[in-house]
Amino acid sequence: MDIENERAVHKLTLEAIILGRLLAEEWLEGSLTTKGSTRLIILEALRSLREREGLVGIDQDLIELMGEQIRKTLNEIRNGKGDAAISQDVDLDWEQDQKVIEYVNLAYRWKQFKAAKFALDDKLAAIRDADVLLAKIL
């Protein structure tokens, strides 16, 4: 890997680690409790993110499970608000319910982490594919 790609991967990794830690801290210090059969998986992932233990076990499916947990919980409080918070930015200027505010903010943090992790995964995939393609030519 050349130095330019190495720097880009380091930058993307740092961003994903920081945003993952912030997501985990906000989630674990807040009032959202994970439910269902994925509860332990999500909690373990959040603890791992909080402690900066790596991103290897955090895949797309797990990230989507986290988002689904936020979406469902927020929809239970205010019908449709979770769907909106996951799919778009939500205006909280007139919102009075502190749980709604907390969960919308958590959804925003989740979206930031998801984007950072997917950008890192895309960069790594591009490097792998480029190496394979270049090996065929050279």
Rank of each mutant, 00 (worst) to 15 (best):
Glu53Pro: 08
Glu25Gly: 04
Arg52Ile: 04
Gln96Asn: 12
Leu138Gln: 13
Lys114Leu: 08
Gly54Thr: 02
Gly67Lys: 07
Met1Gly: 15
Asp131Tyr: 13
Val9Trp: 02
Lys72Leu: 12
Ile86Ala: 11
Asp93Ala: 12
Ala45Asn: 03
Ser87Met: 05
Lys99Gln: 09
Asp61Cys: 05
Glu51Gly: 00
Gly57Ala: 06
Val9Arg: 04
Ile41Glu: 11
Leu14His: 13
Asp93Pro: 09
Glu64Thr: 11
Leu43Asp: 04
Tyr103Cys: 03
Ala115Trp: 07
Asp83Leu: 05
Asp89Ile: 11
Asp129Gln: 15
Tyr108Gln: 10
Val104Met: 01
Glu76Pro: 03
Ile63Lys: 08
Ile137Met: 12
Tyr108Trp: 12
Glu51Gln: 01
Ala8Glu: 09
Gln98His: 07
Glu64Gln: 10
Ala130Thr: 14
Leu43Met: 07
Arg50Leu: 10
Trp27Gln: 06
Asp122Thr: 14
Arg50Phe: 06
Ile42Trp: 04
Ala84His: 11
Gly36Arg: 10
Ala125Thr: 15
Val90Leu: 03
Ala24Leu: 01
Ser87Ile: 01
Leu28Met: 07
Leu28Gln: 07
Gly80Trp: 00
Asp59Gln: 06
Arg47His: 10
Asn5Phe: 04
Met66Glu: 01
Ile3Ala: 13
Asp121Trp: 02
Trp27Met: 08
Asp59Ile: 08
Thr13Cys: 07
Ser48Phe: 10
Lys123Glu: 01
Arg109Gly: 10
Arg7Lys: 13
Asp121Cys: 00
Arg21Tyr: 13
Asn105Glu: 07
Arg52Pro: 06
Leu22Thr: 06
Ile18Met: 10
Lys11Tyr: 15
Ala135Asn: 14
Ala107Thr: 06
Glu29Thr: 13
Glu25Lys: 04
Val104Ala: 07
Ile42Leu: 05
Ala85Glu: 08
Ala116Cys: 04
Ile63His: 09
Ala130Met: 15
Asp83Gln: 11
Ala84Asn: 06
Ala85His: 09
Gly20His: 11
Asp2Phe: 01
Ile3Gly: 11
Gly67Ala: 05
Asp91Lys: 09
Leu55Phe: 03
Ala16Thr: 07
Ser87Lys: 01
Gly57Tyr: 02
Lys123Met: 01
Leu134Pro: 11
Leu12Lys: 03
Leu23Ser: 02
Leu124Ala: 08
Ala116Tyr: 00
Leu46Val: 00
Glu15His: 12
Ile58His: 06
Leu14Arg: 15
Val9His: 05
Lys81Thr: 01
Thr13Met: 12
Ser87Gln: 00
Met1Cys: 14
Leu55Gln: 00
Arg128Leu: 12
Ala85Thr: 02
Val9Ala: 02
Ala16Pro: 02
Ile3Thr: 15
Glu15Cys: 10
Leu120Asp: 00
Glu102Lys: 10
Leu138Asn: 14
Lys81Gly: 03
Ala8Gln: 13
Ser37Tyr: 15
Leu133Lys: 15
Gly36Gln: 09
Leu19Gly: 02
